[in-house]
Simulated assay, not measured.
Amino acid sequence: MRTVTIADVAKHAGVAVSTVSYVLSGKRAISATTRRRVLDSVRALGYHPNAGARALASKRANVIALVLPLRSGMNLPVLMQFATSVVTTARQYDHDVLLMTADEGPDGLRRVAASALVDGLLLMDVEIHDTRVPLLRELVEPSVLIGFPADPSGLTCVDLDFARAGALCAEHLADLGHRQVALLGAPHVVYERGTGFAERTLAGFVEAARRHGAEAWARPCEESFDEVHATVKVLLDEHPDLSGLVVHNEAAVGHVLAALRMLGRRVPGDMSVVAICPDDVAERTSPALTSVLIPAEDVGRQAVRLLMAKLDGQAVPESTLLEPRLTVRDSTA
């Protein structure tokens, strides 16, 4: 079978070869009608431009790196929601995604930047004192962080407002009349690393609970049933009047509900439970959980859009915080 060429695409679309090149490289503005006609011809003919030639012509690799170190205590299904959103959004900008899962710190960033394999970088699992941050301020390649370090100056960061998410949960329970509430947070190792989203959720929860006149406690929460059961039991033994619980560990949500049943606590009759998690996690439990959504798709989409804008030389805001929303279901009363 003969290889389809750029000339074939131009003939099929009824445009010049240079117009096809401009549409594929993005080097010049092309009208929406012409662009659509060219892309329709590309799809109809099954044309695959040579990546090396395209990169030389545009001085771009048309690849972005998603730096997602797979560390202990991370919930893989939720992380994959973020990654899927990044990949699908990047394709809308004619970019592929290089997924970097090794925990290499600054060395990994230096290596991929020096290779000229990528046009820009997206970073996840951002810590309060993240060792990668100083290097990001020096790199020529633009970057966007999904998360916030302690000092975000000179960076571009996007995330759910986790401090507000924690506060929303506490406020909801306080408004229902609960005066002793607790947070079952991320696994202990996540707090040991100083991971930003976990620290901010905890701070927002405790501050809002106390502002509303409620006593608040917090415990790290592991992912196995035995560990969750032990944590919940200790919490109830120490605070027998505890009546409101917030769970910020997607992998532990089902275990928490099962542990409460085994310990003789009805939800929501004896214990109101709120989760910070994706909607599909909250909706498939029994009872369905009142929850604050983790908007992985929206955050991933926003991160890619910000990175693409930076690649095009556009000014972007340093900080983008998505407002959390709480959906009331059957687990709070």
Rank of each mutant, 00 (worst) to 15 (best):
Tyr191Thr: 09
Phe205Ser: 01
Gly185Lys: 10
Glu192Gln: 13
Arg193Leu: 07
Ala186Lys: 13
Gly213Cys: 14
Ala198Asn: 03
Ala216Thr: 08
His188Ala: 15
Val189Ser: 02
Ala198Tyr: 09
Val206Glu: 08
Gly185Ser: 07
Tyr191Gly: 08
Thr195Pro: 03
Glu215Ala: 14
Trp217Asp: 09
Thr201His: 05
Val181Asp: 01
Gly196Glu: 11
Glu192Cys: 10
Leu183His: 03
Val206Asp: 04
His212Val: 04
Ala214Ser: 12
Val181Leu: 00
Gly204Leu: 11
Glu192Arg: 13
Ala203Ser: 07
Phe197Gly: 00
Leu184Ile: 00
Val181Ser: 06
Glu215Ile: 06
Leu184Asp: 02
Ala186Phe: 02
Ala208Ser: 13
Glu199Asp: 07
Val190Leu: 06
Ala214Arg: 13
Thr195Gln: 11
Ala203Val: 10
Arg210His: 14
Val190Met: 11
Val190Thr: 15
Val206Lys: 02
Ala198Val: 03
Leu184Pro: 02
Thr195Phe: 04
Val190Asn: 08
Gly196Met: 10
Val206His: 03
Ala198Leu: 08
Leu184Phe: 03
Ala216Cys: 05
Arg200Asp: 13
Gly204Tyr: 08
Leu184His: 05
Ala209Gly: 09
Gly204Ser: 08
Gly185Cys: 02
Ala208Tyr: 00
Pro187Asn: 10
Ala198Gln: 03
Glu192Tyr: 05
Val190Arg: 11
